[in-house]
């Protein structure tokens, strides 16, 4: 759904800005019993965009904690993978010669 379509609706909360995942979509899966952040990530792409979940992981963990009654610190986060920030492929080719 594009940003403009969101604007038409009254109440939309976007949790993952990179992948455009809404709170409603997350709650739908949580209500189906999917409370594992690893599964939510793979089914919704939440946290898979350029920021790699740096914005939405905490929000998602909070939502899971609310649904499961767990303390938010007990919600297992997904693996943080390299890279720390997006880098252009061209930049990654450098370094072997004096370029």
């Amino acid at each position: 759904m594009a940003g403009k379509e969101y604007a038409k609706r009254e109440e939309v909360t976007v949790i993952c800005r990179c992948e455009d995942v809404t709170l409603e979509e997350i709650r739908t899966l949580i209500n189906q019993g999917i409370t594992d952040m690893e599964q939510l990530k793979r089914l919704l792409r939440v946290g898979m965009g350029p920021c790699q979940g740096r914005t939405c992981s905490a929000l998602l963990a909070g939502e899971i904690a609310r649904a499961t009654g767990k303390y938010v610190g007990e919600v297992k986060l997904t693996t943080f993978r390299p890279l720390t920030a997006p880098i252009k492929l061209e930049v990654l080719t450098r370094g072997e010669t004096h370029d």
Binding site: M48, G49, P50, Q52, R81, P82, L83, P86, I87, K88, L89, E90, L92, T93
Partner: peptide, 16 residues
């Protein structure tokens, strides 16, 4: 990959 598909030079890697 930038040898095979030079157009990808400007595309950013987000995760490995």
């Amino acid at each position: 990959i930038t040898f095979m598909l030079p157009v990808l030079k400007e595309v950013r890697v987000v995760r490995q």
